[in-house]
Write a protein that binds this DNA or RNA. Structure first.
Lengths: 144, 144
DNA sequence: ATTAATTTTGTAATGATAACAAATTTGTAA
DNA sequence: TTACAAATTTGTTATCATTACAAAATTAAT
């Protein structure tokens, strides 16, 4: 459970990012929390441990991570951006009741097929976003 | 080219929307322009013909259309919402150079497959968003 | 050890959207 | 038609996420 932070440093370096304390903390947060947090959630959770942390640093850092391809930014929520430390190909489901965002595994071949569809354009990213009502919110005894 | 506005009225009614002048103008705009406009683009284009039109009306109206399932709201752009009068199943490609959003036809079966992936959740909408560089911006003689 | 470069920080500005209440328009019933 | 009620539109103000910016702090390099 207590992984050494040196792994995070290497992870950042492998993406061409210099591993400062703040950057490591933010990347570590993203890797440990698969909840697709917003800037404010990250800020609120890190603040107790890093009282001098600035919101601006989080914005700057996440933008840097994105440029370097170390994270993915989710546009699934029209209110705010959500961030994902998992850059493997997968989709997302957002519940309109509770707002939670779930990972959805989609077979490689389907992504491959999808990526072939915009034949004339150069595709750099493919985002698959579902919305609806999640299992939790549907309740335990609901007939679907 | 000069389609009667009565079609638009019927179209709105079929979605349970009372066809006011503003609503018809906005829906007609969306149906005639497949450019996925923002609120401000719609506003700027309609204002000359309807000088008393308010931005708030456009927000209200588009929200109503969305509730009634008469349009789709695109979250492909993290800056602003884009609106689409075409509610048939299709995907979108946004160019990071010029910002244009293109329709991308995706076979029904692929959508059907996609919709089956979040097995435990109730899927109400599926959004497939591509980004990259479009043909126009790649230029005419580019080897891809 | 000094200087330069990078990073972090706090504040202020921007811009899209929502909240709200007043004004206008439309529908309804005498 | 007239009068009243409901629905719609409008302009203003508020909110909230994000960006711009410059000063402060930290880190690297000579």
């Amino acid at each position: 459970m207590e992984e050494p932070t040196i792994d995070i440093a290497l992870h950042l370096k492998s993406h061409g990012i210099r591993p400062s304390m703040q950057r490591m903390a933010i990347m570590e947060y993203l890797l440990r929390h698969t909840t697709h947090p917003t800037v404010d959630v990250i800020y609120g959770d890190l603040l107790p441990k890093m009282p001098t942390l600035s919101r601006t640093t989080i914005y700057n850092t996440l933008e840097l991570f994105r440029e370097k391809g170390a994270i993915r930014v989710l546009n699934i929520d029209n209110k705010t951006a959500h961030y994902d430390g998992d850059i493997t190909g997968h989709a997302h489901f957002m519940c309109r009741r509770c707002g939670r965002i779930y990972d959805v595994r989609v077979p490689r071949e389907i992504f491959a097929q999808l990526n072939r569809m915009p034949a004339d354009h150069l595709v750099e990213q493919t985002e698959v976003n579902y919305s609806g009502v999640c299992t939790e919110c549907l309740g335990p005894n609901v007939v679907r």
